[in-house]
Design a protein around this nucleic acid. Structure first.
Lengths: 170, 170
DNA sequence: AGTAAGTAGCTTAGCACTAAGCTACTTACG
DNA sequence: CGTAAGTAGCTTAGTGCTAAGCTACTTACT
């Protein structure tokens, strides 16, 4: 880690270079790592939003459909399971389910075993849409990835991120 | 990349394992990489929020103070420069500046060279607060990083993320 | 000088979320 | 059996953002 970076290579390098001037006592390495993670996250989120937009769903709505889809037949989960998986409050989930139900992509029916609960089931149209959307989304992500890294680097990155995510506690 | 993962090692592995059952035709590698980036981003954002909370500022407000701080003396920028740097609309910036000005952490004064514009300047209290906050935030990030990776891995991760971020186009 | 186009910052309306609290129902226990 | 505690999903109020549109001002062109 050389102390003098001749030319900042990305926006995050520019930020740490500024800090090095005004607060040379700080080790900004952690900021550089997580700063890039934040930026990648929001940049890709915006791209994914655009990828799903032609299909009429937001990224958050896609996440609901995808969670149902990958749970396998009969594509049914409870709102509780969905909100837990997607780290969303029940209030937020109610809103998403309202929109998706109105769009005819899923249906809510009473849980026969627990009269407090509901079962949320993907409709045929919902399954078709999510199958299309997941391919479109993967294409956008793959494009971004392959423009930057070769297969070995991608695997390396994935492994390092897994280690970090695991240590962070989910 | 083995097709049968015996035990999922993190939540993202569990997700790709589910996809492998219902859609074995998909290569979910890109999803695994960006899925981890999304999760790390939101998990760390929540932690940073907590780190700044005792000082009475949100993460977004800290970002404003930090941008002013690292710009160096006299810690002055225009709302326009701030909203551009922080990728925020002018409306959002107005709200943040209102709160920070009310808290006495910065002040708005007319730009002497352009009567449309303003100059936003960190107050003495603002400078003190941001100096404390940046140290607290770095500590949280460093802790997460060091719990997972050694110095060599950290540098490797930082480099791979830089490559990816640069290719993504900032 | 006069006018058109561009820019700075603010306001408003709308959106998606959280936190807190509600009702309805289920489970555990004396 | 009866009551207390827990859980499912919804509602409401509040927050912080964006998109669109506003006024005031500056810049560029003729």
């Amino acid at each position: 880690m050389t102390s003098a970076t001749p030319t900042p290579q990305d926006p995050v390098d520019a930020i740490t270079a500024q800090w090095a001037v005004v607060r040379p006592d700080l080790d900004t390495t952690p900021m550089a790592v997580f700063g890039r993670i934040y930026r990648l996250s929001s940049a890709m989120a915006a791209r994914m939003e655009k990828a799903y937009a032609p299909l009429g769903v937001s990224r958050g709505e896609f996440d609901v459909l995808a969670t149902l889809r990958r749970s396998g037949e009969p594509y049914t989960l409870s709102p509780r399971e969905l909100s837990a998986t997607l780290m969303l409050t029940t209030g937020g989930m109610t809103g998403r389910l309202d929109k998706l139900e109105r769009a005819g992509l899923l249906s809510r029916s009473p849980d026969p075993h627990d009269r407090r609960g509901l079962r949320v089931t993907l409709s045929e149209r919902g399954r078709e849409l999510v199958d299309e959307a997941v391919v479109a989304g993967l294409a956008v992500q793959r494009e971004a990835l392959q423009a930057a890294l070769d297969d070995r680097e991608t695997e390396q990155l994935s492994g390092l991120l897994r280690k970090l995510l695991t240590a962070t506690g989910a």
